[in-house]
């Protein structure tokens, strides 16, 4: 196990290096002069002042020197300074990250709570209308865009006279108000995930139901409930862990649009405002942090999976 953990940790390093490099390259794709673009057309500046700015931001040096400098700073956790607020990108992200993480965790929790029973029922009740109805519902859930679902939730609750858009409060401050502001966004984000998970759980349970040890368990006269609980679910739910883990990382990025719809001050809106204000250091930082979290989530999932199911370590 230790060797496996070490190997996976080492394998994550080149991926992170590649991601950091890619972000550097994307930002350098900006057509034209970055300083000119940043200042816009309103600001009048002499050529000397522009050159001075370029020197301050290190843009007068060759690209490879900028790149090495950038790598060194990123490795030390220095993500630069926002061009708009003059705060460090790291502080800005640290204040926004908890919102997005909470939103993603809530959405995953809701999705799992719905998808596990729904998937098992869809797989086990093979006659009647329940299973096909769940299949169609799951497919619908995959097809509805989350930003529209969020919009409809807002519209619906305002028609019902419920105040949908609470202002965000930190959960440590007032958990009740925090949850009331987070519930609808989490629902909007959870729907698609619940649908995907339901389909996955169903497929996984169906696969296990066809295994010989299930037939053996049945043949020896074990009650249907015991077969399901002891043999089917235990084996069927192991791969589900992977999907949930991967989706958690994915939601950290997918929350952008939902945060925008509900006006939540998370990472997604930070990225969007950085884009609209041409705050490239900020955009660079947000994309990089999200990618790092994503890789970390996937790594943690792999390790958890190896811990649950010892067989896969030898692959």
């Amino acid at each position: 196990m230790q060797r496996y953990v070490l190997r996976r940790l080492l394998a994550a390093i080149p991926v992170l290096w590649g991601a950091v490099t890619l972000v550097f390259l994307i930002i350098r794709l900006v057509p034209g002069d970055a300083i000119q673009l940043f200042l816009g057309t309103q600001v009048e500046m002499t050529a000397e002042q522009m050159a001075e700015l370029r020197r301050v931001f290190g843009l007068d040096r060759p690209v490879w020197a900028q790149y090495l400098d950038y790598l060194a700073r990123v490795a030390q956790g220095d993500l630069g300074v926002s061009l708009r607020t003059a705060r460090t990108v790291r502080d800005e992200i640290a204040s926004r990250l908890p919102v997005t993480v909470e939103l993603a965790l809530l959405a995953v929790g809701l999705a799992v709570a719905v998808a596990l029973p729904a998937g098992v029922v869809a797989a086990t009740s093979r006659r009647g209308w329940v299973s096909p109805a769940l299949s169609v519902l799951a497919l619908l859930g995959l097809s509805v865009p989350n930003f529209w679902l969020g919009t409809m939730l807002i519209l619906g609750s305002s028609r019902l006279g419920v105040r949908a858009l609470g202002t965000y409060v930190s959960p440590w401050e007032d958990l009740g108000r925090n949850l009331s502001a987070m519930l609808l966004p989490a629902l909007a984000l959870a729907a698609g995930l619940a649908a995907a998970l339901t389909r996955y759980v169903r497929a996984s349970v169906l696969e296990v139901l066809g295994q010989e040890y299930v037939r053996t368990a049945r043949a020896k006269g074990l009650a249907a409930r015991a077969v399901l609980g002891r043999h089917v679910l235990r084996n069927a739910l192991v791969p589900v862990v992977t999907v949930v883990g991967f989706q958690l990382g994915y939601l950290l990025g997918g929350a952008v649009v939902v945060e925008e719809v509900f006006g939540l001050p998370g990472m997604g809106r930070l990225a969007l405002s950085a884009i609209l204000q041409r705050d490239y250091p900020m955009l660079q930082g947000v994309v990089m942090v999200t990618a790092t979290l994503f890789v970390a989530c996937n790594l943690a999932t792999d390790l958890l999976y190896a811990w649950i199911d010892p067989r896969i370590r030898y692959d």
């Binding site: 972000v23 794709l29 990025g253 997918g254 952008v256 955009l283 947000v286 999200t290």
Partner: peptide, 16 residues
């Protein structure tokens, strides 16, 4: 390693 939408957002922001 990037959530697809975020990567697309970043590149679209740069390219226009």
């Amino acid at each position: 390693a990037f959530p697809g939408l975020l990567l697309a957002m970043a590149v679209m922001a740069v390219l226009g």
